[in-house]
């Protein structure tokens, strides 16, 4: 017998959320979704949750299981029992509509914001028959090599379950942050060899609330049930932005300033990097450093004024030279 402690809330009736316990004998090999179904069918028909494919493909049934999102249909109950209990809650960073069902409008809006479609080369010729037959038009076939497809393969496996966004720490603090799912989707199009909007996309994604507002907290990587692993896709986007020279923002300047600092002395110069990240001509930005700077100086927490390089610096410089583009 296992106790399922399930988050319940009906905004039309309840003053606030509460947890209801359901006792259940677990059938052998049951998934969490099997058990939710059993509870709904045999104990409490008012329990609401999303489900569809039962095969970890549709992405509908993501719920928090013992604190973190997982696909209910892919999760074996026996692996989740803690002291005879399992806690089930709706995914995070989303408004609860009822019980385990959340409002995903914002999630979908962000996906739409990154233009999840191919921006095609308009000079391509319309298809010749028989391709045109019965179709509404389109363009000639654009082939991809296996290597080209490999760059978008991981992001293509996303099933839009929103597990990554549920636990995204940056989203929790800033609802406007595009978030891991939309950024992973963006990488899928930025790196698509058939897409002609790469520069425009990277410029858009480099703006506030875009790729540089990810903190690398790794929650998206951890919660993603597929190979998408959004954090890796965000890092790829940033590398692409730097390669394309889209560096007129603090995030990109920070990376370049950081690399330059290590190339110079092998160890980070914490006095110089903030100035490089914020930008030498960004007077309000630089002024904002003063309070914390003074505070740290008064406590003797300022980095050493004379910045020393590491021993054997020549060897580190030699390695950097090998990578100089």
């Amino acid at each position: 017998m296992v106790i399922f402690s399930i988050f319940r809330m009906n905004p039309e009736k309840d003053k606030g959320p509460y947890y209801k316990d359901y006792e259940l004998n677990i059938p052998e090999g049951a998934t969490v979704l099997d058990c939710l179904n059993l509870i709904k069918w045999t104990q409490d028909g008012t329990l609401s949750y999303r489900m569809s494919c039962r095969s970890a493909i549709c992405g509908s049934c993501a719920v928090k299981i013992n604190g973190h999102p997982k696909l209910a249909c892919k999760t074996q109950v026996v692996d989740e029992i803690m002291n005879g209990e399992i806690r089930i809650e709706p995914i995070g960073n989303a408004k609860v509509l009822k019980d385990l069902v959340v409002d995903l409008d914002l999630f979908w809006q962000k996906i739409e914001d990154v233009k999840p479609w191919l921006i095609v080369d308009k000079s391509l010729k319309p298809p010749t028959p028989p391709l045109q037959k019965g179709g509404k038009g389109g363009f000639e076939e654009q082939r991809q090599s296996p290597e080209e497809f490999h760059r978008i393969d991981a992001a293509s496996t996303c099933i839009m379950c929103a597990s990554c966004c549920s636990d995204c720490n940056s989203w929790e603090a800033n609802e406007k942050f595009l978030g891991p799912a939309a950024l992973a989707k963006a990488q899928r199009f930025v790196d698509d060899s058939r897409d002609k909007g790469k520069l425009e996309r990277i410029i858009d994604l480099s703006k506030e609330n875009g790729m540089w507002d990810c903190t690398h907290c790794g929650e998206c990587w951890e919660r993603c049930p597929t190979e998408t692993k959004p954090l890796d896709r965000i890092i790829t986007l940033r590398t692409t932005a730097l390669e394309m020279g889209i560096t007129g923002n603090n995030g990109a300047r920070h990376v370049n300033g950081f690399v330059e600092s290590i190339n110079k002395s092998g160890i980070l110069n914490e006095n110089i990097l903030p100035i490089k990240s914020i930008g030498i001509f960004n007077i309000p930005g630089l002024l904002s450093l003063i309070p914390v700077g003074i505070r740290m100086f008064l406590k003797g927490k300022n980095p050493p004024i004379i910045h020393k390089h590491i021993d054997e610096m020549d060897d580190v410089k030699r390695i950097f030279k090998r990578f100089k583009k």
Partner: peptide, 25 residues
């Protein structure tokens, strides 16, 4: 005293192989 910065996940955004090389050193 002769080891360089690990890159803090920043250098790898510019060049993952450079970051791995510095750490391998």
């Amino acid at each position: 005293t002769n080891a360089s910065c690990c890159g803090a996940g920043v250098i790898s955004e510019r060049d993952p192989l450079l970051s791995d090389s510095l750490n391998a050193r």
